[in-house]
């Protein structure tokens, strides 16, 4: 028996919206400790990693580990039928399920929707991600980071992110010209202005803005985002989801030929 009930079903809707342009199908692994998922984009350049702890669910039961192979597009179609204020329950009784049941219930418990999504058998291409002490960690407003990436992507396909003890600089160079946006360490009380820099070693790395813009679809999951970088390593972009867990994106850097 597997059953997971989310009080705020809208969070699940937002997660699926955030990853649906990046990955087409995923294996969700359910265990006693919660749900986890790892998937790469078709070019194997970016990776999405989701972890949802059992404690964050209103009800959670998983008698034995199961793998749920899902088409994100089809999952998205079913989740469109859930209201933003609905609870969402995932359920299956089978040991090797061929489908996953969904229940959506509104706050008044006056409307209950039930769907079943056919599951797929997917080859897992799981990557082992080593625990990394990143040499530059930036925590800032997710909306602000999203705005910077969107603005710069009209000038260039790539952005160079350079950290120092005091600031982080986003630089672009394109056919029309060049530019940069520098964001300084700022211990404001307001989330939208706050920028926390933890710089053990400065880094300078270049990334494709197309992918960063896709990651930023997760902006509604968290008011802050953390950018974790080490020289010659993939960038890790993390959106923490309250008590529930986290959505992480990894992106391999670009290098000069």
């Amino acid at each position: 028996m597997f059953e997971a009930k989310l009080q705020q079903g809208v969070i699940f809707k937002k997660i699926v919206d955030a990853i649906k342009d990046l990955v087409k199908s995923v294996n969700i692994d359910a265990s006693t400790s919660g749900l986890s998922m790892q998937a790469m984009d078709s070019a194997h350049v970016a990776l999405v990693s989701l972890k949802l702890n059992e404690n964050g669910f209103k009800d959670y039961r998983c008698d034995r580990p199961i793998t749920l192979g899902l088409s994100i597009e089809n999952l998205s179609k079913i989740l469109k039928c859930a209201g933003n204020d609905d609870t969402i329950t995932l359920q299956t009784d089978e040991e090797e399920p061929s489908s996953l049941k969904f229940f959506f219930e509104n706050q008044q418990a006056s409307k209950i929707s039930e769907f079943s999504l056919n599951l797929m058998s997917l080859d897992s291409e799981s990557l082992g991600i080593p625990d990394t002490d990143y040499s530059s960690v930036i925590q800032m407003s997710s909306a602000e980071f999203s705005r910077i990436c969107k603005e710069l992507s009209s000038i260039s396909e790539t952005v160079e992110i350079e950290t120092s003890k005091e600031s982080v600089k986003f630089s672009v160079q394109g056919d029309i010209g060049a530019g940069s946006i520098t964001v300084k360490n700022n211990q404001s009380d307001k989330d939208v202005d706050r920028v926390d820099l933890q710089i053990d070693q400065p880094v300078k790395l270049t990334f494709a803005l197309r992918y960063l813009n896709m990651f930023n679809k997760a902006v509604s999951l968290s008011s802050t985002v953390s950018l974790n970088m080490s020289e010659e390593n993939p960038l890790m972009v993390e959106y923490k989801i309250d008590d529930l867990g986290s959505l992480r994106f990894y992106l391999a850097p670009k290098i000069s030929d």
Partner: peptide, 14 residues
């Protein structure tokens, strides 16, 4: 000219 690296360069297949 910039080359896009792949993640498998950094992470191991499991």
């Amino acid at each position: 000219y910039e080359i896009q690296l792949m993640l498998s360069r950094y992470f191991n297949n499991q």
